[in-house]
């Protein structure tokens, strides 16, 4: 029982990291209708900014806040000066551009700061607390709580605010949205900026565990994409729940299903993904898109 609880709580914690990247992907998708494969790379860049600042003696929390501000600006700049050229064309081209951007960011980060693993300080103390008879790390709880708060804020943004409504309108039909006076270009920049900020939060949470390298979030990106499809592209709550399911299931399967073990646990989300795509293609929580002429 003790092992089980520990596996679940650890799964929630790693799932929360996938969730944060997945939320950023959903945000860009809601605002621009495309999947940004560079989301993880942009987050890593933000963590490097925070890392450089802490090395200069800036307190950790300030360094992370600064990296979030950097990300908002960087995300907006990427949208304005790179993605805008491709937005009116074929969406597949735009997606390939984001893959190119990921490669570019990884290369530049490796060139500037080397590919060696760097230590990144943790926001939460490394202590453990007793929970249901097992010891659980404060970091796991902290990661999970931060992501729950962020998810709530995002849901409130999309459903409850004029900005969220405008972002959704622009994603569905930018030309038609402009007919109602929505400044499409500026809204797209806001969407990309917010998503990059979210990535920065995820990066700062996970960097102490994974240690900082240019490719730190490559695996997390794959899991995040699985969560996005599992949860449904239209539902922030859905992708977080899906990311948790993935995090927990892969942990449990590694221990309790002998032939999977730690070597094959990476396959677990994809088996799940396969089943969901066959049975419920819009994801567990997504809405079916209906087209009527």
């Amino acid at each position: 029982m003790g092992t089980f609880v520990q596996l679940v709580v650890d799964g929630l914690s790693t799932g929360s990291i996938y969730a944060a990247i997945a939320l950023a992907i959903v945000l860009v998708n809601q605002a621009t209708g495309l999947i940004n494969f560079a989301q993880g790379g942009m987050a890593v860049l933000a963590v490097y900014v925070a890392w450089v600042l802490t090395n200069e003696g800036v307190p950790l929390i300030l360094a992370i806040l600064a990296s979030i501000v950097f990300s908002i600006v960087f995300g907006a700049v990427v949208e304005r000066f790179l993605m805008r050229r491709f937005e009116r064309g074929d969406p597949d081209t735009a997606v390939v551009v984001t893959i190119g951007l990921l490669t570019l960011i990884t290369g530049v980060a490796g060139w500037l700061w080397s590919y060696n693993n760097q230590q990144f300080p943790s926001l939460f103390p490394l202590d453990t607390v007793q929970f249901l008879g097992v010891s659980v790390s404060i970091r796991s709880i902290g990661n999970t709580v931060v992501i729950i708060v962020v998810m709530g804020l995002l849901q409130a943004l999309f459903v409850g605010t004029k900005l969220g409504l405008a972002l959704r309108a622009v994603a569905i039909n930018p030309e038609s949205a402009a007919f109602s006076g929505l400044p499409v270009g500026r809204l797209l920049m806001v969407g990309w900026g917010l998503a990059a900020a979210l990535g920065a939060v995820a990066g700062a949470l996970v960097a102490p565990q994974l240690t900082l390298t240019p490719g730190m979030l490559d695996n997390a990106l794959v899991y995040a994409l699985a969560a996005v499809i599992l949860g449904g592209l239209t539902s922030p709550v859905g992708v977080v729940v899906a990311a948790w399911i993935i995090g927990i299931l892969e942990n449990l399967a590694a221990v309790y299903v002998p032939f999977i073990g730690f070597d094959l646990k990476v396959a677990v989300p994809f088996i799940l993904l396969f089943v969901v795509l066959v049975v419920r293609p819009q994801g567990l929580f997504g809405r079916k898109s209906v087209v009527r002429v």
Binding site: L165, R168, A169, I172, N173, E175, A177, S289, V291
Partner: peptide
């Protein structure tokens, strides 16, 4: 040019942006 994934009320509110 109606915004398909938004409700009728949301479409009207977008109009009043």
């Amino acid at each position: 040019g109606t915004l398909g994934d938004l409700t009728v009320r949301e479409n009207l509110r977008v109009g009043a942006y």
